[in-house]
Design a protein around this nucleic acid. Structure first.
Lengths: 348, 348
DNA sequence: CCGCTCGGATGAAACGTTTCATCCGGTGTG
DNA sequence: CACACCGGATGAAACGTTTCATCCGAGCGG
């Protein structure tokens, strides 16, 4: 009752197990009358095939893993949607894992994925190079890095040009007359954040020649709470040194900054401009819609999944798989939170 | 190289496969010297056991399924975190699936989960009763309904008293002097939304005795975009019939309403009050922090997972499993978006 | 010195598939 | 009429575990 097996079906239909398997996997190879008889038996018994057994032979399951840094960040849920779309079309299931930016959780998830013999893993790793990721690759499991440039050429990686992204945000603010800018999210060990910071730093230095024009703030986490924390710090600075705008390492931070500024009666964008990063939907939906560096979130996920599937399949149409490391170009979406041109130049 | 099997380990350690299996599953049953030899072999070969094979015998995998309505809704990611916590402690992996509130996607996901022989499924179903869910239960797979009251006593369900939730929101607004209130999200077929609406309707009728005091709006989706759509409708109403406050079926809608109101120069809460539902983190982080009906999101997930595991294990400590249907009490969190007491009574 | 017990190791069966070599009967060809 | 061929069905092997009945040898009580 609980589990009808392929053998039960075979008995009921009066055929061999091999034939039932054929009906399941290559229906054309079996004659119509037999096929119908088998299908009737399947329906009658409510038979559902057992994936465990099915792919025990094949040596791997019809599953891929996706390990993200923060499932509560809409950026990653959008990416996940892209991944799921592609995987679903290919008949693969996705195991979505949340590492919370902690190496230990990441390692635990990777262990489970290895035990499940997933076809491959898409991951935004917590650290620059993870031994667990290397272990996976060394046992032949394809790994695609997500939102991260590859450290070595021997693997696929789907990234965004974050140096450019940082530069776009900074140029925009500089062009609007801002001369004291904060970068929020500085201490994160995540390479993508460091690249954003690099872009911002370079642009600010080139435009102002002033080392002090950039204030780097490092809240504990890259979340809304972290943004509030950073904004409180900014408000506490003496007016002469206080930045007039902030570039945030992601939109959650930006939303936190926005909220805290409003709470302190600092009007955005008149008194303080904000640019976020990722362009999650909530950025546009904020009461003061956030300017943000747009990344093709869903496309990022789709591309990663496509590369993973190609690698797992060993290539396509006879072409062997070749590692690719596409880098998407971010664009700046200007909304209200940075829309005002700054008139009064700071007293300097 | 790719896959060392338990047999390879056995050969290398000079023992039988049974012994290796024992080292893996009941280390005490094997003598220390042998155990160490086996462990050395495992390490040397980089052996990782194959879950597929492992639980082919047991008939089910160490995995549970979680099917949610909208992965982009932070409410569900918070719930998912609760589920994952509990599952992780029990050594189970979670397959997170997104039905997008579409029966077809839901069915496809349930099929995959069945094929994977998951230990159980936690689901917020799209429709009142789904044949696919019934099919799962009839083959003995535990199913726990999430954020949904059970339709029948024979199963576990973790819910929130949504009638009460709706009532809390309505009472709050009524008490602040609002006499024309909108309920946004009306046409959704989701029972939990209908219950919220019931609570609101009852409270408004009791307080005003006026059938027209409540305007029900039904945007296409329960998302930010849907909220904007509804707000645009409200703004378009003649002043005499225009509601002065809205209760939204979830916070995404509420954020959309807020954004659109601000865009039209309607100030919140002075000219228009808003109460959301779910109390997602973004509600508090909105520039005009949203009042919202709070649900214990993570706790909901934890409880659902606990019930599922208990049912899957057939009970605990000798107690057979008993279906439970806990109903959590929602609370109203009042924030700025509804904080003003309405002075001028409407011209009636 | 015999028979028991017991810790510890063994080996085979079983889980539910897929795959592949084999077989069978009918048909078309020479 | 013999033969090759072919569609269609078969049955057994194999995938990597766990489990369980069995076995072995050492220690011990009688």
């Amino acid at each position: 009752m609980l589990t009808a097996s392929i053998r039960d079906v075979a008995v009921r239909a009066g055929v061999s197990v091999g034939t039932v398997s054929n009906v399941l996997n290559r229906p054309d190879a079996v004659s119509p009358p037999t096929r119908e008889r088998v299908q009737a038996a399947i329906a009658a018994l409510g038979f559902v095939r057992n994936e465990q057994a099915r792919h025990l032979r094949a040596g791997r399951s019809r599953t891929i893993g996706l390990v993200v840094l923060d499932i509560a960040n809409p950026f990653f849920t959008d990416v996940a949607r892209g991944v799921e779309d592609v995987a679903g079309e290919a008949g693969l299931a996705v195991m979505l894992c949340n590492s919370d930016d902690r190496a230990a959780k990441e390692a635990a998830h990777l262990d489970v994925l290895t035990e499940q013999r997933v076809q491959g893993v898409i991951i935004t790793p917590t650290a620059e190079l993870s031994p667990h990721v290397e272990a996976l690759r060394s046992r032949g499991t394809p790994v695609v890095l997500l939102d991260r440039r590859a450290t070595a050429p021997g693997q696929c990686a789907v990234a965004v040009d974050d140096v450019l992204g940082g530069r776009l945000a900074a140029d925009h603010l500089l062009e609007r007359g801002h001369r004291r800018i904060a970068f929020i999210g500085g201490a994160s060990g995540l390479p993508q954040v460091q690249e954003r910071r690099q872009g911002v730093t370079a642009a600010v230095r080139e435009a102002t020649g002033d080392e002090d024009a950039l204030t780097v703030l490092s809240p504990d986490t890259l979340t809304v709470a972290g943004g509030r924390e950073a904004a409180a710090q900014i408000v506490g600075l003496p007016a002469a040194r206080r930045p007039t705008a902030a570039i945030c390492a992601n939109d959650l931070l930006a939303l936190g900054v926005l909220q805290e500024m409003v709470r302190h009666g600092v009007s955005v964008p008149e008194d303080f401009a904000i640019v976020g990063y990722d362009d999650i939907d909530f950025a546009a939906a904020a009461a003061v819609p956030l300017s943000s560096v747009h990344k093709p979130r869903q496309e990022l996920g789709r591309r990663a999944a496509e590369l993973l599937l190609d690698e797992a399949a060993g290539g396509h149409d006879g072409h062997p798989h070749e590692h690719e490391q596409p880098v998407f170009e971010p664009t700046l979406v200007v909304r209200e939170s940075s829309m005002v041109r700054r008139r009064r130049t700071p007293a300097s």
